[in-house]
Amino acid sequence: MTIYSFYIFDRHCECIYIKQWHERERAGAAIRPTTSASTTSPIPDKRVSAGGKQITETDISMRNGRLSVQDDAKLIFGVVFSLRNMVRKLSTPDDNFISYRTNNYKLHYYETPTNLKFVMITDVKTNNLRVVLHQIYVNLYVEYVIARNLYVLMLNNYIAVEHSGGEGVACELFELGLESFVVRTLKLIELTT
């Protein structure tokens, strides 16, 4: 019942948030502990913002010959987008693809009515995390990210703010909230299954 990583894609097909709890083994890469002060978890994890402006550890894992985190995100988006279109085409246009499983991992998908896509990669034994993703959207994303940006929006006289390059998403409250929510749900799901 482990969660490996979590991605958010916006409706302009860009990745605006990545969080990894599991260091993908790259060719010869050692797992480097994070030096970021904002997270206190003992698990080595990587917090990377896709934009490039707020990256705290740029030199970790980006240059290891195999897929970088950015490429991963792009591939995931491609897969998710193709599968979603396939499902819509085959079945009714309002059908939604929920998850898929391979022999190593399971990918869960949730799309909001605003075309915001939440993707979570976990191990094989996890059941449907759609509800969890919905909760992340409603309780964390809407509250911390959108509300904060609405404040910024207000200040800027309501010029529409988009998360280009992922700025504004990886704010502290959202991060902490996400971390604690995931840990809590993990425990809950472990207890109930």
């Binding site: 490996y4 990583s5 599991h22 993908r24 083994e25 790259r26 060719a27 195999r66 599968l83 693809f97 929920i98 998850s99 898929y100 499983r101 391979t102 022999n103 190593n104 991992y105 990669i121 449907n128």
Partner: peptide
């Protein structure tokens, strides 16, 4: 999430989609 060498069996590709 696992590389091709670790994790026992090699990764297989999508098996079930819901």
């Amino acid at each position: 999430p696992f590389g091709p060498s670790s994790g026992g069996t090699p990764s297989s590709g999508l098996e079930v989609m819901e």
